[in-house]
Nucleic acid binder design. Structure first.
Lengths: 148, 148
DNA sequence: TATGCTTATTTATAATTATTATTAACTTGT
DNA sequence: ACAAGTTAATAATAATTATAAATAAGCATA
């Protein structure tokens, strides 16, 4: 699926927002970048193309996007609110060693996917977060062990 | 299960920490209170019994507890880091309307409970967060509809 | 049991950082 | 050109962390 600029524009308009230059660029970036950037990282990236952009605009825009459900806000660790333009059902893994964040594809182990109601509460969304030690850090550890 | 002060003390010592008055009281509170308080709420509560306690101590203590795995840190929304003294496997539900936070007991729908490895990454912990509209807010809405 | 010494812990203060509020300037469509 | 919405610059707020001084606890020695 190609996420071209026309598609981006359509998404923004469909949610009742005007497709301004800033909004188009920010959403385009969030759809293409898989690193789940913070508002500050988005700001730095946007300044390359829109040098006059302000942090306020970035915050306003991503907040609106998140409210409208155009992107997902990820609460992964203290002082780090990240944004994810990938709306497909997937999970997130944070490495306790290096702090890296990776997507985990749902493999049918989470049966909550289609749950609509629990204990009388209406469920709109489910997020699954994993923490542990990532592939790379495990390899590094094993390599370290050889010389101990 | 009674979480008495001796048990609290043992838990702290077993994790290599000295069972100071402040630490005992903070952990005792986190084990008894089910409201998942923020650091600030813990600070307010502790001042009732330890009027000289500082915020720094609260932050240091809960950070250490979370690092050692004595309590869980919950990242639920921006600007709100909450702490949970209940280490049993359970999930959390945040109401989009009123912001309330409730526990959700695991009902075997999350098969990730015992997963130890995904894509070569070592999994140490899994957290499931639900968002939606809580029982109370649903009732309020229905009541409101009657008069529309 | 008391005394000093050492280290860990707590406290008070200041600094930092992420985010939001405010308001003026700017765009865009009619 | 006008009106409405959007952006940008600045200031304000709030959560958290850093720093360093004060306190408390542990322990050996007398």
């Amino acid at each position: 699926m190609i996420t071209n600029i026309e598609h981006i524009k359509k998404t923004i308009e469909e949610h009742g927002l005007k497709p301004t230059h800033q909004r188009l660029k920010i959403l385009e970036y969030l759809k293409e970048d898989i690193s789940h950037p913070t508002a500050d990282q988005i700001y730095s990236e946007m300044r390359k193309e829109i040098p006059t952009i302000s942090k306020t605009t970035v915050y306003n825009t991503v907040n609106m996007f998140a409210e409208k459900g155009i992107v997902n806000a990820l609460f992964l660790s203290k002082n780090e609110l990240r944004y994810d333009g990938d709306l497909s059902f997937h999970h997130h893994f944070v490495c306790e060693e290096c702090g890296s964040l990776n997507d985990i594809q749902d493999d049918e182990n989470c049966k909550y996917r289609d749950v609509k109601m629990i204990d009388g509460n209406q469920i709109n969304d489910v997020s699954v977060y994993f923490t542990g030690i990532c592939k790379k850090c495990l390899a590094k550890k094993r390599k370290g062990d050889e010389y101990e």
